[in-house]
């Protein structure tokens, strides 16, 4: 009996991500959920600009590449083109979703747009070589904050789930991580719920996945997973920030 194999919604291409990058795990979780819900054939994914720019190559469902930050707007169009049949998700990094695309994010949430947003927060711009992200931690050394992020100079990180939870619009906001087997299982549950909500017509569902970037954090893949526990989670606590149908507000 097969207990684990690559999901059908993910194709055979070898992904371009660095060794130990958790994008691969998150891609797989999204694909597993598509398989389990039986929606691959009617799902349209929207890829961002950033490390996961080429996500469109790896999923077997139809895919669209959006301009930097615009994925929620593109997803809005695709969803509204055929709300009954299209299942639409965006897959976005922190620069894409929380910096250049913040307006699109906030307004898609405020509209309770019936889409699923997978938000990968690894506190850095990976694709361009490790610059400061809107979610880089105070004191975090990056290429563009070489002396550590000075909050007096360039401000504080943005906590996306906390911020969006203040809106009346969104249906479901949860922050998860993927740095252990248990965490990956939890992340999958959240992602599945975020898709199920869309199928149930409940509206905007965002899962923030606290992720690693071993290459640009200057750590081994194993150290990077520990760094998530030590540095990221204290600043970005995991949990459900909004679950309207369940009557939950953190």
């Amino acid at each position: 009996m097969v207990v684990f194999d690559k999901p059908h919604s993910l194709n055979e291409m070898s992904m371009h991500y660095c060794p130990g990058c958790t994008h691969g795990i998150i891609h797989r979780l999204v694909a597993e959920v598509m398989d389990e819900l039986g929606i691959e054939g009617r799902t349209i994914g929207v890829a961002p600009v950033g490390c996961s720019v080429m996500a469109y190559n790896y999923f077997n469902c139809d895919m669209i590449e959006a301009a930097h930050g615009r994925a929620p707007a593109v997803a809005t169009g695709v969803k509204r083109a055929d709300p009954e049949n299209h299942v639409v998700f965006t897959y976005q990094g922190d620069g894409d979703l929380a910096s250049i695309g913040m307006a699109e994010t906030v307004h898609a949430a405020a509209r309770n747009e019936n889409i699923t947003v997978i938000f990968v927060n690894n506190a850095i711009y990976g694709m361009t070589g490790g610059q400061m992200a809107p979610t880089s931690l105070p004191g975090q050394v990056t290429q563009t904050s070489p002396y550590g992020r000075d909050v007096n100079h360039c401000g504080y990180p943005i906590k996306v789930c906390e911020m969006l939870s203040q809106l009346d619009g969104p249906e479901y906001l949860e922050r998860v991580t993927v740095n252990s087997v248990k965490a990956v299982r939890n992340a999958k549950k959240a992602i599945k719920k975020a898709f199920q909500n869309q199928l149930d017509g409940k509206g905007f569902s965002l899962v923030e996945v606290v992720s690693s970037c071993p290459t640009n954090w200057g750590l081994t893949p194993q150290q990077a997973l520990k760094w998530i526990d030590e540095k990221m989670i204290p600043y970005y606590p995991l949990g459900v920030y909004k679950d309207r149908s369940a009557g939950e507000d953190k």
Binding site: F4, D5, K6, L10, S14, M15, Y17, G20, C21, T22, H23, G24, I25, R28, S180, V181, V184, R185
Partner: peptide
Amino acid sequence: CAIMCPDC
């Protein structure tokens, strides 16, 4: 192992 593997 498979659950933590980023590359299936």
